[in-house]
């Protein structure tokens, strides 16, 4: 087996790029689910973010503005979900699935004029001499700003949920919305905010695909990434750093298996192809099985509708 052909530092750098769209989408969904809402429309919000970000970046010439556009697009679609499920009390599972179908359709419509166009390049941040360091420079100091943003967001979400007053209220709403309501918290308003945040994150994840990772607009380009993100939230037992681990593991094994194939490693390709799903699930299941508190991760009110008159 010839592994010398693989440059491991470059591989780690690539896996961070491959994992970021899923990481962003899963982080958003984590916050949404912690607020007690199950939004299965991640795929739809991602793809809408992908085209919104792409279109805005192309029209303005600035990828940064594009990312804002993507967040706005994803959040807007999420708010449709919020109105339907929180105000009109529709079924969250059905509405989420509809959101995915709607997102795929409307993004194809919006994207008509953007097929075959190249987006403005998202520049890598320049850390001067740090970027030139062998190995460390390649892995840590040679990325675009979205990678650092996504990592900072992991820490921010972790801190928010664990230590901030706002996070405590959000979790209370997700655990027992009647009790939270009785305490005077505005359950629906808080859930609206969480859903919008989730949509914005999914939109950013989608835009990272269309602006950095691929980079181009193609219909249906998320190709199931939103569903992976949903699964990772569950397997990570609703913990921010679990989500980071899950996303990097999934992205990492995906990139690694392609590299192993390219290097001609004598492992049957079928096993390599299924490895990202298998390894990610295995590791996260083992991790969450270790803890007796794991079951507590699932918000008790997840997926249940709330109405103040109940």
């Amino acid at each position: 087996m010839d592994l010398s052909a693989i440059n491991w530092a470059v591989l780690v750098a690539s896996l961070m790029v491959a994992a970021t769209p899923i990481l962003l989408a899963a982080l958003g969904e984590l916050v949404v689910e912690k607020a007690g809402v199950l939004n299965l429309g991640v795929e739809g919000m991602m793809i809408l973010g992908a085209i919104c970000g792409f279109a805005v970046a192309v029209e303005t010439g600035s990828p940064l503005v594009g990312f804002f556009g993507a967040a706005a697009g994803g959040a807007l679609l999420a708010l449709v979900f919020a109105v339907l499920t929180q105000v009109l009390l529709s079924n969250q599972v059905a509405t989420g699935l509809a959101l995915t179908l709607f997102g795929l359709g409307i993004s194809a419509l919006l994207g008509q004029g953007y097929v075959g166009i190249k987006p403005p390049k998202t520049e890598k941040l320049d850390f001067g001499p740090l970027s030139d360091l062998p190995v460390v420079g390649t892995i840590l100091f040679n990325h675009d700003y979205m990678i650092y943003f996504s990592l900072a967001l992991v820490a921010a979400v972790w801190w928010f949920l664990r230590y901030s007053r706002g996070g405590l209220i959000l979790r209370a709403v997700g655990e027992n919305h009647e009790a939270a309501h009785a305490l005077g918290y505005k359950v629906v308003v808080i859930r609206f905010a969480a859903i919008a945040f989730g949509g914005a994150c999914a939109g950013l994840g989608g835009a990272y695909l269309s602006l950095v990772r691929v980079p181009q607009w193609t219909e249906g380009m998320t190709a199931g990434a939103g569903w992976i993100a949903l699964a990772i939230v569950v397997f990570a037992s609703w913990r921010a750093f679990g989500v980071l681990l899950g996303a990097y593991l999934f992205g990492g094994v995906t990139v690694l298996q392609l590299n192993l194939q390219a290097a001609g490693v004598a492992v049957p390709v079928e096993y390599l192809s299924m490895s990202p799903y298998l390894i990610t699930i295995l590791v996260l299941v083992i991790m969450s099985a270790d803890r007796s508190r794991a079951a507590l991760g699932a918000p008790a009110s997840l997926g249940r509708s709330f109405h103040a008159s109940n």
Binding site: S14, A18, V214, T254, V255, L258, A262, V269
Partner: peptide
């Protein structure tokens, strides 16, 4: 160097496969 993507259409995976081949 042959990489089997096991998909007809997945832009992200196709991009990753191309990148892996180029890096090698």
């Amino acid at each position: 160097s042959i990489v089997w993507a096991f998909t007809w259409f997945d832009p992200a995976k196709e991009a990753d496969a191309a990148t892996a081949l180029i890096e090698q």
